[in-house]
């Protein structure tokens, strides 16, 4: 039985907590959040104890695993502190960190203490994305030439409007399509150069927005050309789709449907709905968030290497921040 302590008690933390509670090999023993009432509520719902500080939780709850679900810029603080506590494993939400330097710091700290670190790139556990990689690897479309993804919906409302502060969240380029960037790198290999246009990279520091949009073009080392659409400006509901075109076929999910509806208008209706971030759902027997966390716990139990490494988390952030930089400078950015 893995004893799990969670840092953060917001939207994603609740999802992770319910997955551990449902898992026969895990239980939530501690919750810490800088808002004590949020920690108390989530602890209560999962039979855990709420703590007044992270250090106290590490000390008193005796966790095997710490799961970091606070907003992105503070991942590094909790992961590094947890790495020094001699745990069995650490989970950190995506994006791994707000900068490549932070990501490397986390990777180094965990390597130094020998603590397995799992970056929760849940998209790899979404069945359609996992199946697409299997099909590509099996040559279903021949040699891949182009790949396009799209992701997003309306603007996510959360604690302190942190998603709306690009300095904190990195906007759609870092926060939202890190999912696709990791899946693309996993499926099509390393990226050679990036060119991007977007709203938030053009804003002065300390800006706050209530929508964001970006279009990213990627050239992979393999020659594949990719396009990533990222939106927090679509009131028409959360949409995810992709298509992969090769010299022997085309594989797609939710992309080229004979919809019979050639025009759609999605308009803002004035006052925003409640504070929540759209979490993509996938109505299959196994919840992908459950699957990713169960995978990590299984690896910890068996000593196997988790399928997502700290380097993966770091590289996805590197690609996203290269796109962010390109959108700032107007020039393509070549990756090392």
């Amino acid at each position: 039985m893995f004893r799990v302590a969670i840092a953060g008690a917001g939207g994603m933390a609740h999802m992770h907590a319910s997955c551990y509670t449902a898992n026969p090999n895990a239980c939530v023993v501690g919750v810490y959040d800088k808002r004590p009432e949020a920690a108390a509520e989530m602890a209560g719902a999962n039979g855990a104890t709420a703590y007044a500080s992270f250090a106290e939780m590490l000390e008193a709850a005796r966790p095997d695993v710490v799961d970091v679900c606070v907003p992105t810029p503070w991942h590094v603080d909790y992961v590094v502190a947890a790495a020094e506590a001699g745990l069995k494993g650490i989970v950190v939400e995506k994006p791994m960190g707000r900068s490549v330097a932070d990501c490397e710091k986390m990777a180094d700290a965990c390597a130094a203490s020998g603590t397995p670190l799992f970056v929760a790139h849940v998209l790899r556990f979404f069945p359609e994305f996992a199946e697409a990689k299997r099909q590509v690897d099996a040559g279903a479309v021949g040699n891949v030439v182009t790949v396009r993804t799209r992701r997003g919906g309306s603007f996510p409302r959360a604690w302190e409007n942190w998603y709306g502060k690009p300095d904190w969240s990195g906007g759609v380029i870092l926060d939202l399509v890190i999912h696709d960037l990791d899946w693309l790198r996993w499926t099509f290999g390393d990226v050679e150069r990036v060119f991007a246009k977007g709203i938030s990279p053009k804003l002065p520091p300390a800006s706050e927005v209530n929508s964001d949009y970006a279009l990213i073009t990627l050239k992979f080392k393999s020659g594949v050309i990719g396009h990533v659409e990222a939106t927090w400006a679509d009131p028409g509901g959360f949409k995810v789709g992709f298509e992969i075109a090769g010299d022997a076929g085309l594989l797609e999910s939710n992309f080229n449907q004979p919809a019979g509806v050639p025009f759609v208008a999605a308009l803002q209706r004035g006052a925003e709905a409640g504070a929540a971030v759209a979490v993509p759902e996938s109505p299959t027997a196994v919840n992908p968030y459950y699957a990713e966390l169960d995978h990590f716990l299984t690896c910890l139990a068996t000593g196997a290497t988790p399928s997502i490494t700290p380097k993966d988390g770091c590289e996805a952030v590197r690609i996203a921040l290269a796109a962010f930089e390109s959108a700032q400078t107007g020039e393509p950015v070549v990756l090392p």
């Binding site: 085309l250 004979p258 050639p262």
Partner: peptide, 30 residues
């Protein structure tokens, strides 16, 4: 990039993103 087996010749699509909403067009989807 449409393979020979694609169910139609191709597409013309536009997604126009504005401050107050998004308009999408899939011209040959009828």
């Amino acid at each position: 990039s449409r393979p020979k087996s694609f169910p139609t010749w191709g597409d013309v699509t536009l997604s126009v993103v504005g401050e107050k909403g998004v308009l999408t067009l899939d011209m040959f989807s009828q």
